[in-house]
Design a protein around this nucleic acid. Structure first.
Lengths: 240, 240
DNA sequence: CAGTGGTCTAGACCACAGA
DNA sequence: CTGTGGTCTAGACCACTGG
């Protein structure tokens, strides 16, 4: 029986990419370790060198590997970067970096808005608001302290959700197609609580992203996202 | 006289990428327009289809094109505009707030690139680079500590400029029409020098914006912009 | 069906780094 | 000199789309 030569579930270069990615995630290859050469990969995976080359080249483009002509290919030293603008939630971001996402929920409750909150959410003082506090982790290490305030009259079921699998931002974006987003980025020092939950010292500068999201001109939520400055950066690159 | 087959200044796939990119920028191809097929590109540029394929595939990865199997390749609908792009000229920004812009120049000299700088600017170690250090002020108050490294071989007259009226970024953008910008934002604590020149304390968190600019695929400059976190924020708001 | 992109091969030449 | 990555080719088969 002949097996069709080019019908596969996974392209061969993708198989190689996945294998390398997994090996790095399992720490079989550590940062700065050299990985097999293109010739070795080609032999191991029974592909041509061009196919191995594509796998490695794409992983370089994704920031997972670095190459030096004449020397070899190496696991990239750890670096974290995220495109601004794209409101992609932190979970996707971490998974795209080929790392393990997890989170912990500390609070999920209904409160009444004070003046400041009412202004931010465009509602009246005293209106009900859901408040959630979560910490999102990359490979078990806290990366984002996320407080979120949600207009309770628009999202009455928010507090009934279990956000262990689906993040608040995923839940909200399913319910309300995003139409507008606002970001304000600041540098701040962490509060006592932020220090503890992010496992950082009082003098670690943090990137604070204030994000407000709208759906069809309705202001849905305000999020206050605090990230340790020593392991989180925002990046963007664009043609003009 | 025989011409070496594989010694080129530009790889062939890069030539194709540049040609397509430029055609889009010049609006010879409009959003959603179909561009030539791989076979046509291969013929036009006298390369194999694999080489044309790589050029197109990478442009898809960069978001400039979209492909549909069986249909063709098309210019991406809308260029996502980065909000961080609006971190433009600090002088304009200050004047738009109807405040008084001023600056102070502390250094303007020619240096030789070390390893790190060479990587950032995409040049060889030891290549000449211009270094400038300025502080930009709003109503006399320091707002931005700006170190800039400029590829001296591309901008040989940089060090002869007087940047009191025209900022380095204004000068460069006149000389080199901007084609690509990269921003990486971090939260950091200020160095001794930054504390002094920005007139802030050691525990004031700062927003560090690393900006690299390209013109026609030439990496022109790298700027390191430090802002006091207590009086500077980055903001953006965009429809999606 | 023809035309498109998606993938793959086997081999080649070039450039760079280190011994 | 060897071994590495960087690039390129000519041709091939597969899968999807539309007529």
């Amino acid at each position: 029986m002949k097996v069709a030569k080019y019908s596969r579930v996974q392209p061969r270069f993708q198989v190689i990419k996945d294998a390398i990615t997994q090996a790095i995630r399992e720490r079989k290859y550590l940062p700065d370790d050299q990985i097999p050469t293109e010739y070795e990969l080609a032999e191991k995976f029974k592909v041509s060198r061009m196919t191995a080359n594509r796998a490695v080249r794409e992983l370089v483009g994704e920031g997972l590997l670095v190459r030096h002509q004449g020397l070899g290919t190496f696991v990239a030293p750890i670096q974290v970067e995220s495109p601004l603008l794209e409101i992609r939630n932190i979970a996707d971001e971490i998974r795209e970096r080929h790392n393990v996402y997890s989170n912990e929920r500390y609070k999920l409750e209904k409160i009444r808005s004070n003046k400041k909150l009412a202004d931010l959410l465009g509602i009246a003082v005293g209106e009900p608001v859901f408040y959630s506090l979560m910490v999102h982790k990359e490979n078990g290490r806290p990366l984002q302290f996320a407080e979120r305030y949600v207009n309770a009259s628009l999202v009455p079921e928010y507090h009934r959700q279990d956000f262990s699998e689906r993040t608040p931002s995923e839940y909200l974006s399913e319910l309300f197609p995003l139409s507008e987003v606002e970001h304000v980025v600041e540098a701040v020092l962490p509060s006592q609580q932020e220090q503890e939950l992010l496992d950082i010292s009082a003098d670690t500068p943090c990137l604070l992203v204030n994000r407000r999201t709208w759906s069809k001109n309705k202001l849905i939520s305000y999020a206050r996202l605090v990230h340790p400055g020593d392991r989180y950066r925002l990046g963007s690159r664009s043609k003009v």
